[in-house]
């Protein structure tokens, strides 16, 4: 007969999900840092547009919009982070329940069909299923929130492209404004890539 302890060391099915949450959090942290960068860049762009005067009026409006975009993005990411923090609790609950069920199943295998085990198994399965439902709901909410953020970032991309066009009318300030608008486009592309990674992460394996 196999030693039960060896059987208890079976791969934990949920460890991948906890690692997934860590990856999601890291991605969120990267986007928050980038959003902070956009905010600073937008402030600089506003000052630059002011210096450029009438030639950069449109650029100034867009810089203001980009600053608002950076603030909205930060708020979105904060709410995503709250969701992933909540999901750590749910995943841990499922991990615990699965571990308990697995050990109890091993005990039942060794002991045979003794009284009370059927009820214990049923209770465990009901708890596990309730926790999995909760986790799936969280996963759906997270995915919806990521999609919403992707739409917001699309708008950011449009603003960056428009800023590039406006920069062309900046007269003597045109090269400097062009540089700023190119930087905007690059960081927004970076955020897009991070959101694509986030969109692929799943808290629950299908």
């Amino acid at each position: 007969m196999n030693a039960p302890e060896r059987n208890l060391k079976l791969t934990n099915h949920r460890s991948g999900e906890l690692a997934g949450i860590v990856r999601v959090n890291e991605e969120i942290k990267a986007i928050v840092a980038t959003a902070f960068r956009i905010n600073l860049m937008a402030l600089n762009a506003i000052f630059l547009a002011k210096r450029a005067g009438n030639a950069a009026l449109g650029f100034g409006v867009l810089s203001n919009e980009l600053r608002r975009f950076a603030q909205d993005l930060t708020r979105h990411m904060a709410s995503l982070r709250d969701m992933t923090s909540g999901s750590v609790g749910s995943v841990t609950g499922v991990v615990q329940q699965q571990r308990n069920s697995r050990i109890l199943a091993e005990a039942i295998r060794l002991a045979g069909e003794v009284p009370g085990v059927r009820e214990a198994r049923k209770r465990g399965m009901a708890r596990l299923s309730a926790q999995q439902v909760k986790l799936r709901a969280l996963d759906l909410r997270l995915r919806a929130a990521v999609e919403e953020t992707q739409q917001l970032v699309e708008l950011g991309g449009v603003l960056a492209r428009s800023a590039k066009i406006e920069a062309a009318y900046g007269g003597g300030f045109s090269p400097a404004l062009m540089q700023v608008s190119t930087d905007f486009a690059e960081v927004i592309a970076q955020i897009k890539r991070s959101l694509e990674v986030l969109g692929k992460e799943r808290l629950v394996k299908d």
Binding site: P4, L8, A107, R109, A111
Partner: peptide, 17 residues
């Protein structure tokens, strides 16, 4: 870690309920 072994040994001698 030793729960299965204890549960099984206990169940062999008395009703765990």
């Amino acid at each position: 870690e030793i729960f299965p072994a204890v549960f099984s040994a206990l169940s062999a001698e008395c009703d765990p309920t």
